[in-house]
Design a protein around this nucleic acid. Structure first.
Length: 479
DNA sequence: ATGTGC
């Protein structure tokens, strides 16, 4: 179903040399003017309104190249894609050869998902809900928790992520809350993408977080962050793939907790710094790329490329530890309130990150890896179900999947004067949202998002993922 | 995304 506006947009893109066709829910944008004729594919469920701005951003991402060598070899987008503030549509995936694009990753480095399950019934959970919520509010919002570490441990975290943090912490356990749980945390590294441990470099971390001696009290570590980030208690409402669910330790009726968070201001610091460095590294006298997305060429400056990847990894490592600590705080409180509950990790994976793909790189911006057999976690909006899926490694979509339902309205549009305040129309009726800032409820109301089900269906039909389980929200923490 | 902001 193509609207008049869409037809107009497609004609406009065609005049710019972008040939757009539509078949079986997939828009294919072929770019005649680029290297290797990369194909930008946009996966959209039937009847979805395509946003012109997002499609234009995707098309301009596809045309990025470097005069000294380096090109885009493929671009695609997931059905939740929508315009991004920094010129890159959220839900874009780009494969590059001989270059990386710091601006395509942006500043929300290693935003990602984490899922745990617990053998605790909904009735048991709700019986102590208020007590539990008060403790979590203290930990997440009021800073009544201590995640201090010494300088050596901070170094380990930035340089080697979870494994670096854990090694240093095991040798020098400062945070009493992890002291009883090291063994489980070590084992769970197997269920974190790349063990949550990339090759970072301390020199790229924000200086205030790496004192030469003494204790690091980082007020931001183990906090949720804004926007669509959350920590949510859920119930496994339906298992669709029994054998996958069994092997991942999932059962219907279990309690689950899902975390969507990232590298906080560390990613902003590193991402912003490298967007500027890539701009400054652009050769004088060479025309700026139309997209203003400045790539770093591996042919002309391989050191700069590897330095960027190290810097990005430094922020990504912080993001992995941030999610781990958010989970560990919650698991500690579960044990305190409900008794000895294991609450094992199912999986943790990143959304916004550059990863090697053979001799090329893949940047996922608001999209997650979906390689064969791997767990994929796709959150719904507040109040709607989330999904645990299995990746199928569909190369047409660069072995990726969506990162959510996709925004329908901006945060600003939701909070502006005159915007809808009716709980029913906002979809907020019956939603249990715990936050200190009431405007979050409006900005992140279900009405701000597209429905999740068509987004999941489109990806299942395209052979990108299969559904393993559906998880229903019970209560959501929003910063 | 960000101790946001037309």
């Amino acid at each position: 179903m193509q609207s008049k506006n869409l037809s107009r947009l497609l004609r406009a893109l065609s005049r710019q040399g972008l040939n757009v066709s539509y078949q079986n829910g997939v828009y294919s944008v072929r770019l005649d003017n680029a290297f290797e004729s990369p194909t930008a594919e946009v996966l959209l469920p039937e009847g979805f309104a395509v946003e012109g701005k997002a499609l234009k951003q995707l098309a301009s991402l596809a045309t990025v190249s470097h005069p000294s060598g380096g090109e885009v070899t493929r671009v695609c987008a997931t059905p939740d894609f929508h315009p991004g503030d920094a010129g890159v549509a959220i839900g874009s995936i780009v494969q590059t050869k001989n270059m990386v694009i710091p601006a395509a990753v942006g500043s929300d480095i290693n935003c990602g998902m984490r899922l745990h399950v617990a053998d605790l019934s909904l009735e048991e959970f709700l019986s102590q809900r208020n007590h539990f919520v008060e403790l979590m509010k203290g930990d997440y919002f009021l800073g009544t928790r201590d995640v201090s570490m010494d300088a050596v441990t901070a170094r380990g975290m930035f340089q080697h992520g979870i494994l670096g943090w854990l090694s240093a912490m095991t040798a020098n356990p400062l945070g009493s809350f992890v002291a009883s749980n090291f063994e489980q945390l070590w084992q769970e590294c197997d269920n974190v993408y790349l063990s949550g441990s990339l090759e970072g470099n301390i020199n790229y971390a924000p200086p205030e977080l790496v004192p030469k001696t003494g204790i690091v009290r980082d007020g931001e570590l183990a906090t949720i962050g804004g926007g669509n980030h959350f920590v949510e208690i859920q119930i496994v409402e339906r298992v669709e793939d029994k054998s996958a669910a069994y092997s991942w330790g999932i059962k219907e009726g279990q309690l689950a907790f899902m975390i969507h968070s990232g590298s906080r201001s560390v990613g902003k610091y590193i991402g912003g710094m490298w967007r500027d460095r890539a701009w400054k590294a652009w050769q004088i006298g060479t025309a700026y790329p139309n997209s203003r997305l400045f790539p770093l060429s591996n042919d002309s400056n391989p050191d700069l490329v590897s330095n960027y990847l190290e810097a990005e990894a430094t922020a990504a490592n912080y993001g992995f530890v941030n999610r781990l600590l958010l989970a560990e705080l919650l698991r500690l409180r579960l044990r305190q309130v409900y008794g000895d509950i294991a609450a094992p990790l199912v999986y943790d994976l990143p959304h916004n990150i550059t990863l090697p793909d053979g001799k090329r790189w893949i940047v996922r911006k608001g999209a997650c890896p979906a390689y064969p057999g791997q767990p994929v976690i796709i959150p719904g909006s507040m109040g709607s179900s989330s999904y645990l899926l299995m990746g199928l490694g569909n190369e047409r979509f660069l072995s990726s999947a969506s990162h959510g339902a996709g925004r329908a309205k901006s945060r600003f549009a939701m909070s502006r004067k005159g915007a809808c305040r009716d709980e029913l129309s906002l979809g907020l009726t019956g939603v249990d949202c715990v936050t200190l800032r009431e405007e979050r409820r409006l900005e992140e109301a279900p009405a701000a998002y597209k429905p999740i089900q068509p987004v999941i269906d489109a990806q299942v039909e395209a052979g990108m993922v299969k559904v393993v389980a559906r998880l229903k929200p019970i209560l959501t923490f929003k910063a």
